[in-house]
C-alpha cells in the first residue's frame, strides 16, 4: 500500500460503523428488570453507601481499579506537533485500544483544551476519584516535565508520561544486558546521548538511577554538547550539563573511545567512521524512527563486534 491508499484506508477504518475505535460495554448482566434494579436504582445505593463508609471500597465495587485515563492536550502529537486536542483524539483512542488488547485495561481518553500548566494539573487532580491511574500522552516539553512531577506529588494514583518512560525502560533493560554481554560496568562506561528531548532526559535519568555516572554521560542537542558554558539550555537540559570536556567537543570526537551510543534524535547523523572509533564491543542504540541514527547494516559493517538495537521490527533488538 502506498502512502495515499494507506491514508485512505485509515480514514475508512476510523469512520466505518460507529466512528472511532472504542466503546463502553457493560460487564454485568443487564438482561431483565431485576438486573437493572441491581445495576441502578434502587440496588446501586448499597455499594454507594459502602464506599461512603470506606472510600477504599471504590476499588471493590467500581471499575476504578482497572480504569486508566489517557490524557493529552494535543501539543506534541506523534511527529505532528501541536495539532490541538481534538486532532489528538485518534491517537488517544488508539492508546486506549492498545491498553485493552495487550493488558485488558480499560481507558477513557480525555483531550483537554488548555496549554496552561496549572489549569492542566488542576483538571487532572479533580479527575482523580474516577481513575485507577493516569497516562499522560503527547504533551510538549518542557511543560510535560512539570505536569508529571507535580501530579505525581499531588495525586494518590499512579501517573506516567508514556513518551518519556516507555523508551527509557526498554532501553535501560537492553543496556543492562548489553553491558553484561561485553563485560563492562555501568558505573564505568562513557555514554553518549544524541538528543535532549523528553525521552533523552528520561532515559539518562533512568540510567543514572541504575548506576551510570552523570559525569560519564554526554548529551547532545541540535546545537552541540550540553555544557555549562552554553546560554541556550532550556527545559531539563541543564540537569545533564557535563563540563568534563570542552564546550566545542563534537559528536565525532566524543564518540572516540565511547562505550555506549544512545540515539534519540534523527536519522543518519552517525557515520561508519564515528562508529569505528568507539571502544571495543560498542553498544549502539539508534532509536530514531523510522530512520535510525545509523543503519543496522552500516553499523555492523563498520563494527562487527557491536551490539546494535533500533526502533525497527525488521532488525534484531527492537526497542
Amino acid at each position: 500500500m502506498d502512502k495515499k491508499s494507506l491514508n485512505e484506508e485509515a480514514l475508512i477504518y476510523h469512520a466505518e460503523g460507529r466512528p472511532g475505535k472504542i466503546e463502553v460495554i457493560p460487564t454485568k448482566a443487564t438482561g431483565n428488570q431485576r438486573d437493572l434494579s441491581l445495576a441502578y436504582s434502587p440496588g446501586v445505593a448499597a455499594p454507594c453507601l459502602e464506599i461512603h463508609k470506606d472510600v477504599n471500597n471504590v476499588y471493590k465495587y467500581t471499575a476504578k481499579g482497572n480504569l486508566v485515563a489517557v490524557i493529552s492536550n494535543g501539543t506534541a502529537v506523534l511527529g505532528l506537533g501541536d495539532i490541538g486536542p481534538e486532532a489528538g483524539k485518534p491517537v488517544m483512542e488508539g492508546k486506549g485500544l492498545l491498553f485493552k488488547i495487550y493488558a485488558d485495561i480499560d481507558c477513557f481518553d480525555l483531550e483537554l483544551n488548555t496549554k496552561d500548566v496549572d489549569e492542566f494539573i488542576r483538571t487532572v487532580k479533580i479527575l482523580e476519584p474516577t481513575f485507577g491511574g493516569i497516562n499522560l500522552e503527547d504533551i510538549s516539553a518542557p511543560a510535560c516535565f512539570e505536569i508529571e512531577e507535580r501530579l505525581k506529588k499531588e495525586l494518590n494514583i499512579p501517573v506516567m508520561h508514556d513518551d518519556q518512560h516507555g523508551t527509557a525502560i526498554i532501553s535501560a533493560a537492553a543496556l543492562l544486558n548489553a553491558l553484561e554481554l561485553v563485560d563492562k560496568k555501568i558505573d564505568e562506561v562513557r555514554i553518549v546521548v544524541s538528543g535532549a528531548g523528553a525521552a533523552a532526559i528520561s532515559c539518562s535519568r533512568l540510567y543514572v538511577s541504575l548506576g551510570a555516572k552523570s559525569e560519564n554521560i554526554f548529551m547532545y542537542d541540535s546545537k552541540g554538547l550540553i555544557h555549562g558554558d552554553r546560554t541556550n539550555l532550556n527545559g531539563k537540559k541543564p540537569e545533564f550539563i557535563n563540563n568534563t570536556m570542552p564546550k566545542e567537543t563534537t559528536l565525532g570526537q566524543i564518540l572516540d573511545g565511547a562505550d555506549v551510543f544512545i540515539g534519540l534524535s534523527k536519522g543518519n547523523i552517525l557515520d561508519e567512521e564515528m562508529v569505528s572509533k568507539m571502544a571495543s564491543e560498542p553498544i549502539i542504540f539508534a532509536m530514531a524512527n523510522p530512520t535510525p541514527e545509523i543503519s543496522y547494516e552500516k553499523a555492523k559493517a563498520a563494527r562487527p563486534d557491536c551490539i546494535m538495537a533500533t526502533g525497527r521490527s525488521d532488525y534484531p533488538n527492537q526497542d
Partner: peptide, 15 residues
C-alpha cells in the same frame, strides 16, 4: 517501579 520493570525485562531476555 521503573527499575522493577527494567530488571524484569532484562532477566526475561536471559531465560
Amino acid at each position: 517501579m521503573k527499575c522493577g520493570a527494567v530488571y524484569a525485562l532484562a532477566e526475561l531476555a536471559k531465560k
